[in-house]
Every structure is written in structure tokens, then in C-alpha cells.
Nucleic acid binder design. Sequence first.
DNA 1: TCGGTTTTCGGAAACGGTTTCGGAAACGGT
DNA 2: ACCGTTTCCGAAACCGTTTCCGAAAACCGA
Lengths: 342, 342
Amino acid sequence: MIHITIKDVAKRLNVSVSTVSRAFNDKYDIKKDTKELILKTAKEMGYHPNPIAKKLSQNKSLNIGVVIPEFMNSYYSEVAIVLQEFFISKGYQVLLMQSNENEEQELKNVKTLINNMVDGLIIAPTVGYRNTPYFIEKHNEGYPMVFLNRIDETLPASKVIFNNVKWSFFATEHLIRQNNKKIYHLSGYNNLCVSSERVEGFKKAMNKHKITKENYKIIETGLLAKEGMEVIEDLIFHHDIPDAFFCVNDMVALGAMKKLKDNGYKIPDDVAFVGFTETRIAKLVTPQLSSVRQPTREMAKKAGEMLLNRINNPDSETETAIFNGEFNIRKSSVRDSSIPNI
Amino acid sequence: MIHITIKDVAKRLNVSVSTVSRAFNDKYDIKKDTKELILKTAKEMGYHPNPIAKKLSQNKSLNIGVVIPEFMNSYYSEVAIVLQEFFISKGYQVLLMQSNENEEQELKNVKTLINNMVDGLIIAPTVGYRNTPYFIEKHNEGYPMVFLNRIDETLPASKVIFNNVKWSFFATEHLIRQNNKKIYHLSGYNNLCVSSERVEGFKKAMNKHKITKENYKIIETGLLAKEGMEVIEDLIFHHDIPDAFFCVNDMVALGAMKKLKDNGYKIPDDVAFVGFTETRIAKLVTPQLSSVRQPTREMAKKAGEMLLNRINNPDSETETAIFNGEFNIRKSSVRDSSIPNI
DNA sequence: TCGGTTTTCGGAAACGGTTTCGGAAACGGT
DNA sequence: ACCGTTTCCGAAACCGTTTCCGAAAACCGA
């Protein structure tokens, strides 16, 4: 457990500590021979530069803070994995915190990370807009930040977002083309921007195809399977089951499908389903669930690159990247058997 | 972005830096009045102790390394959340790394964390035993480590494990009692200890009930849904479908169930199913999947406590904690309708 | 009032690096 | 042989804390 320091190496070779330091940092003047000699014997001695000391002397933490709203839907797990890999390859460490879909927890997390001197933050905000003023304040102070996915429009910082309106429109239009006359949208949270955007896409499709308000509904749910179930219970009670559901995410869709199946409805014959933000489970249920896949890896990586850019060029313009996805049509939304239920 | 340091506070109050430091660390002699004055003005000035400098001067990183094998099954996500919460409440930060079920990646992760001077490690090993010698070496050097879940028997370090043999036995016996004559076990990886233990429990039940080798099989699969599917394809091809399957985890069970359903088998009427390490999806599929729930939160927390104990009392004895679970019987494994399919 | 304790605090050395500055050594051209 | 450059390296300051040591101040009993 005894750590070998730069001094030990310097003493062994009868050079100064600054020379050893130089050997490890390419940017300074040092003769090639001495550099190699130092690196070689340092390795022999098992020396590793102490990252903490490095951080202190450089006034850089080499840490990146990542704040995600939750961990239980695999979406943000994947984001976490990608960011981790990316930043480690760039010499940074990632401090990951999750907010449990709770604004106060989120604020705590961000403050903890800032107190821990992270060099930058990637934030995928939780439901609600209450922390936006704080984020704006920090952004204006010059703190490098990139926001992912759930963005308050008013944020002037760099952002990575998914084109929810467009793909929600496509998904809804698909249901209309399948000849569903009455379509309900289970919409997540009203004060969640991805929800509002998906609602917007849904409404656009309704308008384009001249479906009137008697024939669609937008029902606020939440993001969990349980909440999908509860809504269906209520609809069954009121004998108000439409031809199709478009759901804010796969979990809500799965919960709703389950409840309907348990009550004797056939999917997709009686009710068709489309989810969003495709999960790996979509292919495991019967029938397989149609869903919009988001390029999660690419979006996360882009957020990482943007943050590095902001750290290294604090005066550069903020950017916004908008991603598109892929609509995977499966059995849950098609009644003829042209789509094999693999 | 200008950080206020202890010196700024000291200068403002005309005291020495050591006095300010003392005010923030309860253990030293300081007059109550001065302490309160210092804390008050420090707060006014917006001073936060620089954690990096603190770490350097104390020769402690206040970081804990957590290495998990994967992130995509919700099990280890939950472990990560719990450990995160626990250590933050104790003033530590958690550096989380995932190994992608790859031994080399795991070794890299552990080395990265050790180079980053984590004060201790919690490791949930990946499949395979190749890194055990390295772990033993570090443990013998005095590095505080706690192992979770997948443990090489020969590791002399502290461990938190689940009683796989016992609960695998119970689950299997349940299938026998449901009058299944021919039962196959989809077993995960042969070189994964949780797999071997579950195999052991399975065999025990077979022996106890005098089921002979013609009437059971143990089939190595892997841990993913895809691999469950592949095995079933093969078995269907050979017309070799038993009365029931006991699976190493829920994902394999779900994959296998899906494949059987797609080929016209009724679950549980034709084939009964039991999973393990219950996931939230178990309740969302039709029929709901019987499974063994593990006390994930409690196990993770125990691992955290053990590690803290090892850090603070390096000379204490290593401990081993063995946890028990809960077998949730659902529709997938019972043919009469005594269990409602909620 | 005085000597001896006990409190309370300042100075300074660590912790392990980076980085500026300036000087010695090597080099190169005349 | 000499002078001006360039290359290379050592000394020392610095990053922001903690903590040891010792001394001043306060207290206390006789």
C-alpha cells in the first residue's frame, strides 16, 4: 500500500522532480534519452502519477458529472455506459448520479457535483422545470454544461435532443394507416418536454388526417408500467377502449397491454399498440411491440463530445444537435399477418 | 468560476488558515465562538472546502470503486443506485465501472480504480475466474475489498452472497410438486459460480424426489434472452420439449417462453416456467413469470457497510454474509387456476 | 501574585504533483 | 576562439488543505 512518488523516481535517477514530471507530460522541453530513461525506471519502480495531486496542481478535477433522471429504464443505463467509456478514453472520470425523477434530488446532485469541482456537467433533467433558473445561472457563470434529451426550451446551453415531434407523428400516422379510427395517446407527464413534443406529433397526425376530437384522447399517465395499467383499468371501467394506443414509452405500453390482455382483449386484433424509446423487452413480449428506436449511443457520445468542446473552448458558440430515429413496426400494431411475429 | 479558498476566509477574519481549517473539522481545539464566527462568514462568502486538496493532504481519496459485470439487466442498476446513495451519505463518492461481462475489461477497470486511489472496492465479478489471483494479491496487500454475488470460493476477502443452492432447490421442488415429470434447467454459464450453485440446488431436488437422469437435463445457455431462444429452437428441432423449465434468470426464461409461445406451445399448460433473480418485467409478461426474488437493496447495502468496516478497521476479520430470498409463484408455473393472474 | 494547567491559536511543514524562471551546457556559425 | 542560440534541466513557488509543534493567553488554586 506504500505509494511511490515522483520524488522516489527523481532520487533514484539523481534528477530533479521537475524533470520527472516533464517526462510524463509531453509538452515540456526534455531530452528524448532522459525522458525514456525516466519512463522506463518509473515503470520498473511501479510509479503511477497521483491523480489527486495532479488535479490539485492543475486546478482541474478531470471529473465529469453526469446526472440522469433514473436508472431503471434501460435507456439511461445505456447513456451512462456510453458516457463512461467515452470520457475514460479521454482521460476523464465520470461521476454518475441519478435523481430518481425528483427535482430536489436533482438539484442536490448538481450542487454536489459542482462542489466536487467537476470540470463539466451532462444533465438529462427530470420531470419539471423548477431547476432551470439554477442551470441558467451556472451556465452564465461559464460552467460547461450539456443537456440531454429533456430540455427546457429557454436553456441557452448546448443540447442534444431527439426529434420527438417527427417520430411521434410517424408512429401515429402508422396507426391511422392501419385503419384505426379511434386512437388514444398515453402521454407521460404534462410538464415533461418529451411528452409535450410527442403529444404535438400525435396531434399533427390527427389534424393531417382530419380525425376529430371525438375520436382521439390524450391521457396523462407517467412513465411506468404501473401507470399504464391504472389508466386501462379506468378506461375499462368506463367502457372506453379505443382501436389503438400510442404510448409515451415502452413501459407504459407494456403495462397497458398486459391489463388489456388480462381482461380478454386481443392485441392487436382488438387493440393495436405502439410504444416509444424502444427497449430490449419490446421483442420479448407477445405480441412484439412496435416502437420508435432512438440512437441512444450516438446521442450520448455526441453529448460527450460537445461537453469536451465546451471545456476546451469556453468561448465557442453553444450547439444543438437534433437526432432522428427509426420506427420498428412489429406485430402489436398490424392486424394482417404480413409482419411475421419473430 | 473563481473559487474562494480557506485563505480568503482567514484573511477576512484575520485568523490563520489552520484556525479556519479547524473550524471545519470538529476534532481540533477551537473556541466555540470563533468556530461559529468562521463558519458563518465562510458561508456568507460562499466558501466550500476543496475536496481535492482535502484528499491530497489526508492521503485519502474518499472515493469508492464499484465494478459491476453489466448494466443492462436491472439487477446491477439497482445495486449501483443503492451503493451510490449509501456512500454519498457517508461522505464518499462512488466511481462506477462496468465490465461488459468481460474479464479483461474487468481487470482494466479495477486497475484504473486502484490507480485513481479509491479507498476501497466493491466488485461483482464477471463470468470466469481469471482475475481471481489479482484480486487475492490486492486483498493480501491490504486493499479493502468486498465481493458481491459471484464469488470465487478461494477468495479470502469479505463477501456478500445469495443462497443460490437453497432457493434453486425450492424453485425446482415447486415444479416437481406441480407434477412436472420431465424438467430441464437452463443454467447460464458453466464457469459462473451462481450458475453452478443453482445447478447444485436443481440436482438436489432431483435426487430428493428420485427423478432419474432420463427425466432431467442441464443445458448451458448464457444470461441473455437471445440465448434462451436459441436453446428452445434447438430443442424444438429435436422434438425434445420437457414439461417444465427452471431458468438461471428471468431474461433466459422470457426468451425461452417467447420462442415456445411463437411455436404454439401454451404456457403453463404445455410447459411450465420458473425464473430467478426476479425482474420487474416478470409481472408484465403473459403469463406472469414465477421467480425467486433476491433482496438486492439489502445485499448491496450490506456490501457497502462491510467495505466501510474494512476501511476503518483494516485488521478486522473478513466476513461473509449469506442472504435468503423469496419465491414468488405466479401463473407461469401453475396449471390449475388457484393463482390468479393479476 | 505566582506558578502550573489547560485552551486556543499561529507558523510551518507536509501531501504529490505542475509550471515558471533562469542559468548551464551544448551547439553552430563566423 | 568567441559569441549568440537553442536545448535541457534544477530551484522554487504554487495548488488548498491538514496537522504537528510550540507558544501565547486564559484560567485556577493556593
